[in-house]
Amino acid sequence: MKPAPFTYHDPTTADEAVALLAQHEDSKVLAGGQSLMPMLNMRFVVPDHVIDLNGIEGIAGIRDARDTLEIGAMTRQRDLMRDGTIAEKAPIIPGALNWVGHFQTRNRGTIGGSLCHLDPAAELPCLMAAYDATLTVQGPDGARAVPFAEWPLAYMMPSIGPDEILTAVSVPCWSGNVGHGFVEYARRHGDFAIVAVAALLAVEGGKISRAAISLGGVDVRPLRLDAAEAALVGEAPGADTFRAAAELARGIDAMSDAYVSSEYRQRLAATLTERALNAAANNLNGSA
């Protein structure tokens, strides 16, 4: 299980990386390597060129721009978990990262890698969908911003050209009386989820003023439960309200594969949505 031969490049700037991509047709960008390296080892991908982003200055790190977190694409998952600002402004992120692989894979794996790999069950895309994050992509003609809703084009296919790289993610944080819940079911700790649910709630005057529910693993891309979100707004948080909203998840179109049926995914979607909403209601007040 050794990779097929390739030529290795280690650019030091994003411009250089983009230029290399433009220059070499069959190339693959290497970030944390926690998804790409297995595929290289198994020869599922056999690029002629590997462009390593690990030496590039300025595309890793977390910056707090008022209520938006600016996260460099090469920020390691470990650093997202250890960062004080994220813990304060978007505590759902470090909590959910606990479910992403294992601490050894998080020491290398990056947020950008996860968003570009775009596994349907991955936690970070599911979270970014909940936040309506904006992604910054750099290509030969400069940078462009992509709202997360437009990011996934198809199964594991992000809206990024062969000569572009993802450089940053902006996460607009929620403020006020905010609660968050992240729940997933995987067979074993660290496995990709069968279904994952991220829920954000904001409450004003005892009523839900804003809700975001994002489901991973049910569709080829993270799925926002618009109907349930709409149903929640204006209601007082409570077990029955949550159950009713979560029931809407049972009706979604869920994929099936050799291991899991769509009915089972629907069942998990409903169950876990309810649990995520309850969790979110339980940590309202200050903790957000």
């Binding site: 297995p38 198994m42 067979r187 074993r188 700790h189 660290g190 496995d191 990709f192 050799a258 291991y259």
Partner: peptide
Amino acid sequence: PLTTNYGEYLLPLASE
């Protein structure tokens, strides 16, 4: 064979 890696073939882990 469909389960040809350790993501798909589930060996028992310490956590469970």
